[in-house]
Amino acid sequence: MYILEIENVSKVYGTFSALENISFKIDAGDFVGLLGVNGAGKTTLISAISGINHFSGTIKVAGYDVITQEKLAKLSLGVVPQEIAFDPFLNVYQTLKFQSGLYGVQKNKEWIYEIMERMYLSDKANVKTKALSGGMKRRLMVAQALVHKPQVLILDEPTAGVDVEIRKNLWDFIKELNKKGHTILLTSHYLDEVEELCHKIIMIDKGKLVTQKTKADFISANEQLPTIVEIETQDGKFSDNLQSMIVNRIDNTYQLRLENNDQLLFVLNCLNAIEAKILNLNLNKPNLEDVFISYLKR
């Protein structure tokens, strides 16, 4: 079953086309990364799914049309917006309690305390939201999106301004939710996070869908991308035949750019020919970031 269906979604601001006929579907329980540079249309698309943006086309959440079955669609959805948002009149606990009520959820005190604990906000329960730091406000927004245990959770750069340790714990929590069946759609500029967490990648650029693939396919489809090999030799001894391939040198360690994997044998033969003793060798396969950049260059 598809939990999120986007069909021919377009959005125009005056003469600027922010989204152009975007279509994709997400399976229930999937963990999907939505990638694109700033201004690619990610937030516009998320706003359309959330019901805070007018658009043309069709969007369904858990089978419910976000226009004609707005209430049911919204009940299935939790969204962490990109911009920091807070109600200055409420404290942390009240924010989550009122947020629960807005989704018709009552008597969920235990769940509220659990998400406050998982978001490291327990000691701030009675603190007014306006007194929280930027990172705390962002964690509160994640908690707000989770109060009604939505089937689909959309995270629009949820870790911006959040420190490393709490970020790791946040992702552990999100992974747990995903394992319990919640579908996650994530945008982040931390591509290592996306690479670690997501099973599927959807990439948009200039309002258009560029590609949608499983993460493995996304990366393997780009094996022609250059591989970087790091070689440390004794006394820095190196073959002149390899000079054109060197991209960097730090002390006795050389970084070489291989256009294909066959070149590795050539490198080893050259070093063997001059009897260079190899102390360390690391092969860096293209990662998500390399693939992402290569797509942008096309």
Partner: peptide
């Protein structure tokens, strides 16, 4: 107007309210 400024309006608009 305050909800617009603090951004909190999005949480109201995203809630299942007609």
């Amino acid at each position: 107007i305050q909800s617009k400024y603090t951004g909190n309006l999005v949480f109201i608009l995203m809630a299942p309210l007609t």
